[in-house]
């Protein structure tokens, strides 16, 4: 299929991008890597009037170290994320989850920011951003603002981005201390979206789990934190039984959908198993 016709704008700075979005009319769509957008447009499930392509906004690409956080440009591709030394050092969970996204070619074009702004509940990176307490820097006609990940994902394919706003970069706090991480993804075939996935970061201290952060993929219209499990793990013994026990509450507060791959109750079961596995691995057990 061929997309419906649209106007095409290709800004080279964030400022130009914001302006282009403002001038793009009623139905403007921002394109990052386009790896979800172009197929949807080819199927004519989306037919925007204007496409603002961020592909040439150089300042939105790359990773920099800002002391206690890494700042990842929204237009940094998945392939760049996977091979970035700063991410490998300070945000390994991001790299681990990104490696599971789609396939080699898609990762060459798809971007970190695009995946977050698309907010597909089956996408892998929103849960990671949530688990790591990332902050999303957004530019709009009124200037820039920062939205915590916990407030960014509003609903199915819906974020806190206001009309006219562009996601510019993502601040990912470095994990200080003895952290282990794991992204546990469950799907039926290799290049598929997650049926359920669990992003876990676990800090160990003196044989105990001092802190656990757990993000859940595809357990509701938005990514979620497994808060009950996190609480149960806080201060728990770093032992398989304790982890298994805590993982049993991983489905609390979730509202997964039913589709071809899984009905809701099965997802609720899966998330417990995957949480146990992710935390166990992250805790080095």
């Amino acid at each position: 299929m061929i997309p419906a016709p649209f106007e095409y704008v290709r800004p080279t700075t964030v400022e130009e991008a914001v302006q282009a979005v403002a001038e793009g009319g009623e139905d403007v769509k921002i394109m990052a890597g386009g790896q979800s957008l172009i197929p949807v447009m080819r199927l004519r499930l989306a037919a925007p009037e204007t496409i603002v392509d961020l592909g040439r906004v150089a300042e939105m690409r790359g990773v920099r170290d800002e002391g206690d956080a890494l700042v990842i440009g929204a237009m940094t591709t998945h392939a760049e994320v996977i091979t970035d030394p700063l991410i490998a050092q300070h945000a390994k969970l991001v790299a681990e989850a990104t490696e599971t996204v789609a396939d080699r070619q898609t990762r060459r074009r798809g971007t970190f920011g695009g995946a977050l702004a698309h907010a597909d509940p089956a996408g892998d990176l929103p849960a990671v951003a949530l688990a790591l307490d990332a902050e999303l820097v957004v530019a709009g006609p009124g200037g820039r603002r920062t939205v915590p990940a916990s407030e960014f994902f509003v609903d199915y394919l819906t974020t806190a981005l206001e009309e006219g706003e562009v996601l510019v970069e993502i601040r990912v706090p470095k994990l200080a201390g003895d952290w282990g991480v794991r992204y546990e993804k469950f799907n039926r075939v290799a290049q598929a979206w997650s049926i359920v996935a669990v992003a876990a970061a676990v800090r160990r201290e003196n044989g105990h789990i001092a802190e656990a952060r757990i993000g859940l993929t595809n357990m509701g219209p938005t990514p979620l934190r497994a808060s009950a499990t996190e609480a149960a793990l806080s201060g728990a013994a770093a032992a398989p039984d304790a982890v298994a026990s805590a993982a049993r509450s991983a489905a609390e507060g979730t509202s997964p959908s039913s589709d071809l791959n899984a009905q809701a109750d099965y997802r609720e079961h899966l998330v417990q198993v995957l949480t146990r596995r992710a935390v166990t691995a992250a805790a080095g057990l």
């Binding site: 394109m31 990052a32 979800s36 957008l37 961020l54 995946a115 698309h118 996408g123 394919l157 981005l161």
Partner: peptide
């Protein structure tokens, strides 16, 4: 799922997604 995917074209999910 065309009803739900209609959400794709809302400005809220503006940045063309990348899986």
């Amino acid at each position: 799922q065309t009803e739900t995917t209609a959400g794709v074209s809302t400005p809220q999910s503006a940045l063309g997604g990348d899986r």
